[in-house]
Design a protein around this nucleic acid. Structure first.
Length: 505
RNA sequence: CGGGGUGUGGCUCAGCCUGGUAGAGCGCUUGGUUCGGGACCAAGAAGUCGCAGGUUCAAAUCCUGUCACCCCGACCA
């Protein structure tokens, strides 16, 4: 039977498939507020797992959590020139603090309540946190400051997509201040490494760590680093960024300290963040035409037990068996905790119930009915490969951790293979155009083509124009690999290293 | 902000051209037969047709205005 749970398939219409997976897995939905989503319990549970693991990693690298205001005085944004330019066009602005009935009875802002200085809803918190740090820092002994905050931010984007780009989104933003440039640069790279570690070992999403080119840099940063992942439509997703801000923000916000010689110095700062976009990346990396596929280490539930009984006589026996199995499985270790088990004994049809969990991406499903109990076992199905087999109870309990690890590793390898098969070096404009041009132009919705191209390049108007025309972007200059010198594929100018070029989200 | 489109039960939509007072599928409720991979039959509940005007004996349908949302472009984690 060729029927898939998700219509359309990835092949037929990837963007629509993505939306349908989210709907089928009940992760999130559009809200009554334009561009803002409601994250539903199953989606939130995934984000919670991400938060918990990342938070542990931040603390293990010496950071503490704190919280700063949602609102930022408008003037703060202006203190860093590049920063303003980057964010001014997408700011939500608060101008009043009171409403009153207007001429037609509808509530309108009360003119008498206009704020002297408008507030913006934070699009990112460098400025407000920087100005706070300025008060905290006097001596080199006050440094470094290593703080992270979990927060929501607002960027008024023109077009939104669930998880990938929403007007309001949830993220963490780390903000650190250091006495030396070297220390701040080390911090920048350390956190990039933490993100890569998380992406690969928890999300099972292979990433390329690299530096952004000048054109793609965070507004106000000296250098920006990112992890880039390939989705199943071979487009790139920027999954996390880490910025070395130099002294740009410390000068703007006056974060000054006296060094050991009594000389006044500006601090060196960094910032780094990942967002709920990671959930989108997770979906697009692993899911298939039957819905969500979750890497076990982040799955809210590792295994769902599905009791099967025909009559009320069989019910107590089956439920008792399932309950005791749940207990045994939950005593087993996996990843950073125990095995997470769900019993689904809702009174709905077996087939429907099964599909429900397929679509939600639960790594393992175990059907347990009288026949299985007679053999003291379960009928086990693997979400990622679709394999099904009878498994003896004791064996299941003993191997559950290993089975989940196998799934986790299998997902990573599958994703890595896709990326490797769709990454190639490109040296001429002709090859470049061939690679990134859709073959069947009438159906660009269904089009999946190209991938990652590794090209020598020289930034300039000629390259900008080509990239803009074909909607290709420079993702990053990979850190890994020695990188032999060469010539720009377009202009022939000398180039030190290849960069990853791709269409992107 | 430009260009295109759509607003009709919870969801997806038909009906509009050629006005006559609202339909289908899915979902939901109830009953029955089923039940180891998305069941079937029957009976029900549920809509002031986005909003405001206008034309008309009569408006979901025609006209004007307005609001909202969607798609394409510029922006972007």
């Amino acid at each position: 039977m060729a029927k898939t749970a998700i219509t359309p398939t990835r092949h037929d219409d990837y963007p629509e498939w993505y939306q349908q997976v989210i709907k089928a897995a009940d992760l999130a939905e559009n809200s009554d507020v334009r561009g803002c989503m409601v994250i539903k319990p199953w989606g939130w549970a995934i984000w919670e797992n991400m938060q918990r693991v990342l938070d542990g990693m931040f603390k293990a690298t010496g950071h503490e959590n704190a919280y700063f205001p949602l609102f930022i005085p408008l003037s703060f944004l202006q203190k860093e020139a590049d920063h303003v330019e980057g964010f001014a066009k997408e700011c939500a602005v608060v101008t009043h603090h009171r409403l009153k009935p207007g001429p037609d009875g509808k509530l309108v802002p009360d003119p008498a309540s206009q704020l002297e200085e408008p507030l913006i809803v934070r699009p990112t918190s460098e400025t407000i946190i920087g100005s706070t740090y300025a008060r905290w820092v006097e001596s080199y002994r006050d440094l470094p400051i290593l703080i992270n905050q979990w927060a929501n931010v607002v960027r008024w984007e023109m077009r939104t997509r669930l998880f990938l780009r929403t007007t309001e989104f949830l993220w963490q933003e780390g903000h650190t201040a250091h006495a030396t440039a070297e220390e701040a640069q080390e911090e920048t790279m350390r956190m990039l490494g933490v993100y890569a570690d998380f992406a690969e070992n928890w999300m099972a999403m292979p990433v390329i760590q690299g530096e952004k080119t000048a054109g793609e840099r965070f507004p106000g940063a000296v250098s920006t680093f990112a992890i880039e992942a390939m989705m199943q439509d071979r487009k790139a997703l920027q999954a996390g960024t880490s910025h070395f801000l130099g002294q740009n923000f410390s000068k703007a916000q006056k974060i000054k300290f006296q060094d050991q010689n009594g000389t006044e110095q500006f601090a060196w700062t960094t910032s780094w963040g990942v967002s709920t976009r990671l959930v989108g990346g997770l979906i697009m990396t692993h899911s298939d035409d039957d819905g969500l596929v979750l890497p076990p280490r982040l799955a809210p539930k590792h295994i769902v037990l599905l009791p099967i009984y025909r009559s009320d006589d069989e019910k107590p026996q089956v439920l008792a068996y399932v309950a005791s199995l749940k207990k045994e499985l939950e005593s087993q270790d996996f990843a950073d905790g125990k095995v997470r088990v769900l019993i689904d004994d809702r009174d709905i049809r077996g087939g429907e119930k099964n599909w429900y969990h397929v679509k939600r991406g639960v790594p393992l499903r175990a059907e347990i009915g009288p026949k299985d109990i007679a053999k003291n076992g379960v009928f086990l199905a693997r979400r990622d490969t679709g394999e099904k087999a009878g498994v003896e109870r004791g064996e299941l309990v003993a191997t559950i951790g290993q089975r989940l690890t196998d799934i986790q590793n299998g997902l990573f390898q599958r994703a890595l293979k896709l990326r490797e098969e769709n990454t190639r070096e490109i040296n001429t404009e002709g090859e470049f155009l061939e690679y990134f041009t859709p073959k069947n132009k009438n159906e660009d919705k269904a089009e999946i083509h190209g991938g990652f191209a590794l090209c020598h390049f020289a930034e300039g108007p000629q390259l900008d124009e080509l990239l803009k025309k074909h909607k290709v972007t420079i993702r990053c200059i990979p850190l890994a690999g020695a990188g032999e010198g060469g010539q720009c594929f377009l202009t022939g100018q000398p180039s030190a290293k290849r960069a990853v070029f791709a269409k992107a989200y």
